[in-house]
Design a protein around this nucleic acid. Structure first.
Lengths: 218, 218, 218, 218
DNA sequence: AATGAATGAGGTTTCATTCAT
DNA sequence: GATGAATGAAACCTCATTCAT
């Protein structure tokens, strides 16, 4: 009526705007600490509208998270695809990972939020992306192995384990890096690479045992 | 009336029992998802008694967590202390870590619960233990370096970063391992060691550059 | 289902209604003895709505109390402002005070609730009004004194004490009056005036000592 | 057993000690804010013992309060009894009142605690003492009046009202005095006397109207 | 004469979510 | 297409009080 004609956006624009705002809030304070009330207030609309658009809090979070997840996977995917050899693929992926975080740290926070409720759907959907990261590492590791090894179930399981470890290292390092800001994105990428690449090499070199104890020089 | 004369325990016993029960619940579902009512019911007493003993939910959690934290640190500490050289210390620590998880996997869940409220006291107390793990890795890494390097601020920061990555790898691997149960504790330990030890060696070998790219043989 | 389609009120109306209801309850039984549940039930809504509107119990009480406080101060203020001489001001104030209580006795109960929690914000806000009553008496007493006396710190302290006593007398009398209803508002006002006015006169008469013992006739 | 033989007091001594401790706590923080747990801890016994001795919190408070009430009434009573004329009786009573407070301010706090629950037995018992104070004032006021007036119901009611006002003034002044400590006990007593005595005199002087308006100079 | 263990009942507050317009 | 009003359910925590020894 007499109120200063609020900008009336189209449904799509409003959703976009809501996603942006919610994403910021979630990234800043985590899933659990953000209330729907806050989001609605921040967006400048009412809660029912948000429910109308997204159904519930979980779905809203998922929508936010998937944007970031897609972007991250896309970034890494592109980097990996541009590499010729497997080792290069791994390194390119790592560099893309940290470079991505550098430009969009909120994306990271939403993808690797540690306060997600244990049993819910959100965590399930998040792990889809986490799984994809794992697959990048697995794939580039497997690619270095001879055909025969790749088909061994034991090897595949071992590779999954190693990849999991590497993803964990990357996550942990990322968190530390974003918190301390003590080096450049490419430096931290090199640091991770230099830490795990030798191990990967040793593991994938066909003529040598995978374990460390063996004396490599003799 | 017809109630089966509930056993009255001594304060100490009841506390112990409460800690056990609460520990299980927290380990299973995380801090936030467990209510004091549940704990009380599971123990077979009423809430006020638990509040009388532990003060509040945070303190109860901390009590649970510290038991596990102390045990874990103790286990690693002992293992590390028994090693002669730095490389052996690191490896012993890793083995002790996974061996500990093998015997008390709930301990892990409580120490690395990811749903802890962001600003509270709990997370502060948890990080004390996490920090100690980090220190084990840092110390054993620094110990391999020449005196001069050890005093460099840049090196120390780099070592902290690498250690953070390794702890992350261990955490992630542990989670995966506990979820899949696909190998023995000692196997997973060796797997982690073989993945990161070469990188550590390369980094700490005094005559070589710390980064990977440089051709070492030429 | 069969529920009698509860009237949905506007925010303003609901707040007003809630204030009315809560005011009554608080007046009847005191701050501590009234629960939010009761208030909600009495209003015919659920607690969250009331929390949504008022934030918490203290704020709700303060809102109730300030309505009464403002009205009381306003009433006295108007009466006092209409008087020409200081003695008239005092008497008008007293009459306005009891007349106000006569029309809104609940206001009194809320303003002078004796069960308010010691350390909270409520009591702080209440004392603002109590202080204003004190100031009315102080001001009208000081106004009767010669300029010189008014500037004496000792005199000002003494006047504060006397005013405090008079306010106490008024409060106490009010409580008794509201409980017994044994006389009219104007009668009780005159009664208070006739009890303290002579003392005030004696104190403020410039040519005589303020204390009683001195022989006035000599 | 091996514990350092706690002083085992007789039942009476223990009760005395409990009363002392509880009295202090109640005086300091008011009825509502003191918990039975605190009292027990402060006394150094267990709650059940206190319940065994005093039944419940109310009764305990009453026991504390009555000690103070008896002492206060006793003090005033003695002072009043020693006076020859009614006016002297009133003044002696007031002096005794403030003198009593000066030596035992905790007694005051317990007798005039403002946080007592509205409907309970405590407040009933407290008012017995408050009533006695009122009676002192009433009696000394009535004593100044001619026999005939004393028998008038209207006069008696008026005297009760005036006495209530005076008691209120005394209470209020006492609270202010104990909080500010800005004068001696006898000074504050004289201050109260000089404030109300003229009014009382005017009221009781048989030949003059009780109200102030009458022209005093003619 | 005294205790340690234990409880019933209730209080304030929060949050995701939906109704009625 | 959007809103303001309203709720259900539950969480943490406290306190006077009693049971069983």
């Amino acid at each position: 009526m007499s109120s200063p004609t609020r900008t009336r956006l189209s449904r799509e624009d409003r959703m976009e705007q809501t996603l942006d705002t919610a994403h910021s809030l979630f990234a800043e304070r985590g899933y659990a600490a953000v209330t729907m009330d806050e989001i609605a207030t921040a967006v400048g609309v009412t809660k029912p509208l948000i429910y109308n658009y997204f159904g519930n809090k979980e779905s809203l979070y998922i929508a936010c998270m998937e944007r970031s997840g897609d972007a991250l996977v896309e970034a890494i995917s592109t980097a990996v695809a541009g590499s010729e050899d497997p080792s290069g693929a791994f390194e390119s992926g790592v560099r893309a990972f940290f470079s991505f975080l550098d430009t969009d740290r909120a994306a990271w926070a939403v993808l690797f939020d540690e306060t997600l409720p244990h049993g819910g759907e959100v965590i399930e959907r998040v792990s889809v992306y986490r799984r994809q990261l794992l697959d990048f590492v697995s794939a580039s590791t497997l690619a270095r192995m001879p055909e025969k090894a790749r088909r061994s179930k034991a090897v595949r399981s071992e590779v999954e384990a190693v990849s999991t470890a590497i993803i964990g290292a990357a996550e942990s390092l990322a968190r530390w890096w974003l918190a301390t800001e003590s080096m450049s994105a490419s430096d931290v990428a090199e640091l991770l690479i230099s830490t795990v690449e030798p191990g990967l090499l040793a593991r994938t070199a066909p003529s040598q045992p995978a374990v460390t104890e063996g004396d490599p020089s003799a």
